[in-house]
Design a protein around this nucleic acid. Structure first.
Lengths: 333, 333
DNA sequence: TTGAAAGCGCTAACAT
DNA sequence: ATGTTAGCGCTTTCAA
């Protein structure tokens, strides 16, 4: 391009990088004019080859179909937008191979920071990228003993959240409480289940495996069939539950639908979700759920990525909040 | 890297690009070994500087918070994944400036195809990128007279969809039908409104402006307050509506919540949405809505982006489908 | 105040 | 069967 303005590349570069104090107004004008008429944009690709960082942030989520992940993406996008930074969102379906491919693609595009919202126990598939200096921030995944030291984890206390949900039901008199989830192969789900177990145990309610239907499918893309099977299983028990804790709001809604479809009155049943998706407050009965402080978490991540490397940066755990609504109105005498 | 394997760069390049028929097994081994031990990945940045295309596809959506856009993103991602291609999702909040910035960022990263799911009437802000050869495919935006010829539009027939929704209500006996939307500044919303008007007109029902509350806010991120205001306005009329058509499912759910909050029995009211988000079928009453054939549309886009340039590629319009569920059960005698 | 030259990592044409 | 060279578009000395 520069050539077409009748000046040397370095002159253009100088102007581009605000090193134009000493520049002849006339020259500047000529260059600016040529830029405009050619609608020239400096090639970020060339800049990156020279070592400039790609300012964009990568965000990988398990399933954009689940509105929770959409809200999280929007929240994080908003927080970074306020700092003039953009986000590329990637959908992994929680497939480690897909996750690896996205991380390597972002890496290949020179992106330095990736927020990985996938709570898989092992992060081995990301080793090469991490070794190459890609900074990974894991979201929704509490710190593990075996994690590499450069990994940052940002999460709520999932165990505490599920404990609150379960404790709330117990306080309303429920003692037969099902736990509805897909596969529990992620760290956050394991923690949620642990919170459920602790609440039962603290209240001297024995854990009944029959109330925790198992599945090997995560149900991220579609919780419907899994929740239906689970609900039908527990409703068929001799001593069926009067309440259920779902591993997330989509499971809660799917389970509620299954209860209705089984001909039961949903008002006779208490349901608690997890995540606080927007529709939870629009439906009837409105969904009691556990809320994550997404805004605070997004801002913490903005700060983490702005930090100069080298400083000690601990993993962060945020407190969840129980939001009580109509779906847990009923009290058991 | 190559240097560290004791061979020339071209040798590495040859191997990388499967031009290794004539290669000494011993040499190949040495190179492969060095790659492995350094966990070497060819720099896509350098490759792009040499002219290689970035295989990733850009997808810009108005609001990842709306589950419809999440489903669309997942659908398109799945279709491209089947062809070994990845997608970067960007959230524009329907802000033209944000949209422009994302398009230019994708352009700067060497991405050639962008699916732009924003139905703004003018696309002037994207001219520079389009002139530079970035292929833009507009989704949810029917072709306009003033569109540049290289623009491809992929959309449903929004007018027909809204006509079906309104006609359905009329057939159930409703004659006072509100139209609930945020700002109608997008092409798809204008078309939907046109379909509503045509159905009324064909049935000799006068269009009553009082049943079409106006707003200047699109309500993409949060339809709640807009829907609430709209509902309260129409319910306060002397001759209030018995049914409503919403511009999308989120507005339908928000409006239903507002009706309930106003103390009305939702069963006395008929509601039709638009988009068929997953939760619509999980709630009670389940939401009657207009479905878009997302799978077909995603596959059409895969084909469009695979086409060699130069072939004539017309804009595509798909037919919507009315999905009747419980929210329009009631008949007016 | 501006320009010339080198080099980032890769590929393609050409040479050996 | 492998190496050499030039150049993609930019930035950064250094020189003029």
């Amino acid at each position: 391009m520069a050539r077409a303005a009748g000046v040397s590349p370095s002159t253009v570069s100088n102007l581009l990088n605000a090193r134009d104090h000493l520049m002849q107004p006339e020259t500047r004008r000529r260059v600016l004019e040529a830029m405009e008429s050619l609608s020239y944009r400096p090639s970020r690709v060339a800049q990156q080859l020279r070592g400039a960082p790609n300012p964009t942030l990568g965000l990988i989520v398990p399933s954009v179909t689940n509105p929770f992940w959409g809200s999280w993406a929007a929240q994080l996008e908003g927080a970074f937008h306020a700092h003039g930074r953009q986000i590329y969102l990637c959908n992994s379906e929680r497939d480690p191979e897909r996750e690896r491919a996205y991380v390597e693609q972002l890496w290949a595009d020179g992106i330095e920071h990736i927020v990985l919202s996938t709570s898989l126990p092992s992060l081995d598939h990301l080793r090469p990228a991490m070794d190459a200096g890609v900074q990974i921030i894991a979201f929704d995944r509490e710190h593990q003993e075996t994690d590499p030291p450069e990994l940052l984890n940002v999460s709520i206390d999932n165990e505490a959240g599920a404990w609150m949900a379960t404790q709330h039901l117990i306080e309303r008199g429920h003692r037969r409480i099902a736990f509805v989830s897909g596969a529990m192969s992620t760290i956050s789900r394991q923690r949620r289940f642990a919170g459920y177990c602790r609440a039962l145990s603290e209240n001297d309610i024995p854990l009944d495996d029959a109330l925790v239907p198992r599945s090997s499918d995560l149900g991220d893309a579609d919780s419907g069939p899994l929740a239906r099977t689970a609900v039908n299983t527990v409703l068929a028990l001799d001593d069926p539950p009067t309440a259920l804790v779902a591993v997330n709001d989509m499971f809660a809604l799917s389970a509620s639908a299954a209860i209705r479809d089984a001909g039961r009155d949903i008002a006779e049943f208490a349901v608690v979700g997890f995540d606080d998706i927007a529709v939870g407050s629009l439906i009837s009965p409105a969904l009691t759920t556990v809320q994550q402080p997404l805004r605070d978490m997004a801002e913490a991540i903005v700060r983490l990525t702005a930090d100069e490397a080298g400083e000690p940066r601990p993993s962060l755990v945020f407190p969840p909040t129980l939001v009580v609504r109509g779906s847990t109105e009923r009290r058991i005498p």
